[in-house]
Amino acid sequence: MTKKVYDLHTHSTASDGTLTPTELVQRAAEQQVSVLALTDHDSVSGLTEARIAAKSAGIRLINGVEVSTEWENRGIHIVGLGFDKTHQNLTALLQQQAQVRHQRALEIGLKLEKVGIPNAFDGAKKLADGEVTRAHFARYLVQIGEVKNEAQAFKKYLAQGKPCFVKSGWATIPLAIETIHQAGGLAVLAHPLRYTMTNRWLRRLIDEFKQWGGDGIEVSGCGQTPDQRHLLARWANEFGLLGSVGSDFHFPCGWIEIGKSLFLPENVTPIWTELNEKLNEKSG
């Protein structure tokens, strides 16, 4: 029997990815992915298209979203999986998040203008199918030759502490978890080792996430060292969290690929043990 390949964290043009939902699903099929979650930033607008493509490709699609939150003046991402995408509380939260993102984008555009880069908001908007994100500004800065690559755009202009960074005002983690649960889903702490904080702060974040009702933690991602994966596995067990896997794919590149090296250590309970019932209940 062929082992299922899961990827429960991916992005499309519905947020800051570069592939359409259909193209993303097609790439997942090429990578032999069996179960896929489309988890666009604060948006479920790509799920209908992705579901049609997944049915044709023989992939099981899980409703997903990556909710932006704030914790101790840091941006933290919470992935929701297996929810009812039409639930009124989830819809209301995502509408509020969209308003926050739009206002932030306008302010980033103004800050870029002040440092000598006019019309950045309009330029970024032309690159976005949905809400304008910092990634779209980064791509615009590359396009006009202001920086060599997107990483440089963040390092020079867009990252926290840089001249064009704008504090967001995202939802709190407890609100994100509660809303995901109200919509019938599971809440997962995304890519914990990507946040620039010490292990002591990370343990505090994970502990509070669990106390607030969080369900899982991303243990497996692309480009990890074995030590990093084992550390996350140990924390998953210590705090009683299910283990999730996700590439956090945004665009084709050499080091991040859909479904690549996404396996859990044997001692971790997979989040899909809980998701299976939700998959059966919410197939549409």
Rank of each mutant, 00 (worst) to 15 (best):
G221H: 11
R203C: 11
A105W: 00
C222F: 09
L189I: 01
H230R: 09
G75A: 09
I177L: 01
Q224W: 09
D16I: 02
A176T: 05
N149A: 05
K125C: 03
T225M: 08
G130R: 05
R74S: 07
P174G: 10
V35L: 07
E274M: 15
P21R: 01
D248R: 03
G169T: 05
N276S: 09
C253W: 06
R229F: 03
Q31Y: 12
C164S: 11
G80E: 11
V100F: 06
G64I: 06
A28N: 03
G246M: 12
Y195E: 07
L19P: 02
V5D: 13
L275S: 07
V132A: 04
R204N: 00
G17C: 12
A120K: 01
W201T: 06
A151V: 14
D40Y: 11
K156P: 05
Y195I: 06
Q152G: 06
Q26K: 14
R204I: 00
P21I: 11
I59V: 07
G259C: 03
F154W: 10
Q143R: 12
A153Q: 03
W235L: 03
I62V: 15
K148N: 10
A138M: 08
R134L: 15
N199P: 09
R194H: 15
Q160D: 06
H136W: 08
T39E: 03
T179Q: 05
G221A: 12
G254T: 07
G254S: 07
A124V: 03
R74L: 02
A236W: 02
T196M: 11
D248W: 00
Q97R: 12
L47Q: 11
V5E: 13
A124R: 02
